Simulated assay, not measured.
Amino acid sequence: MAKQRARDDEAVRITTAAVSPDEDLRKRQKRYLVSMTIRSACFVGAGVAGLAGLTWLWPVLIVGALVLPYIAVVLANAQATRIDDFQLRDGAFGAPELEARR
Score class of each variant (00 low, 15 high):
96 P>G: 01
66 L>A: 15
5 R>T: 12
63 V>N: 05
95 A>F: 01
92 A>T: 02
25 L>S: 11
71 I>Y: 13
39 R>Q: 14
67 V>D: 06
86 F>W: 12
101 R>I: 03
16 T>I: 09
64 G>P: 01
59 P>Y: 08
72 A>H: 06
18 A>Y: 05
5 R>F: 11
39 R>Y: 00
10 E>P: 04
98 L>K: 03
36 M>H: 02
12 V>T: 10
22 D>G: 07
85 D>M: 10
19 V>Q: 03
17 A>G: 10
10 E>K: 15
27 K>R: 13
2 A>W: 04
35 S>F: 04
88 L>A: 12
69 P>E: 08
92 A>E: 05
13 R>S: 15
3 K>G: 06
43 F>R: 03
10 E>G: 06
102 R>G: 05
38 I>W: 00
26 R>L: 12
44 V>H: 06
88 L>S: 09
2 A>N: 09
23 E>P: 00
53 G>K: 09
8 D>K: 13
68 L>V: 06
59 P>E: 07
28 R>A: 01
64 G>T: 03
93 F>T: 02
41 A>Y: 01
52 A>Y: 09
11 A>G: 02
6 A>S: 14
54 L>T: 00
88 L>I: 09
70 Y>P: 01
91 G>W: 00
27 K>G: 04
76 A>R: 11
57 L>F: 10
36 M>E: 10
52 A>G: 08
56 W>C: 04
4 Q>Y: 12
54 L>V: 05
49 A>F: 07
60 V>L: 15
96 P>Q: 03
92 A>H: 08
45 G>L: 02
99 E>C: 00
36 M>K: 02
83 I>S: 08
87 Q>V: 11
1 M>Y: 04
26 R>C: 04
38 I>V: 12
74 V>E: 09
40 S>T: 14
77 N>V: 04
45 G>K: 03
73 V>Y: 13
55 T>P: 01
65 A>R: 05
24 D>I: 00
6 A>G: 06
101 R>V: 03
96 P>A: 04
93 F>L: 02
52 A>N: 12
13 R>N: 14
83 I>M: 06
55 T>E: 13
52 A>P: 04
12 V>F: 06
49 A>V: 07
7 R>N: 13
87 Q>R: 10
85 D>T: 12
34 V>M: 07
8 D>C: 07
99 E>R: 00
4 Q>N: 14
58 W>A: 10
35 S>I: 01
45 G>D: 03
55 T>D: 14
20 S>T: 14
51 L>H: 06
74 V>W: 12
77 N>L: 14
63 V>L: 15
9 D>H: 12
17 A>I: 12
87 Q>Y: 07
22 D>W: 05
93 F>M: 00
101 R>G: 00
30 K>G: 00
95 A>L: 00
48 V>R: 07
61 L>F: 03
1 M>W: 03
36 M>N: 02
49 A>R: 05
62 I>K: 04
33 L>W: 09
92 A>S: 09
9 D>T: 12
75 L>F: 07
80 A>H: 07
98 L>V: 01
21 P>G: 06
9 D>I: 08
86 F>Q: 12
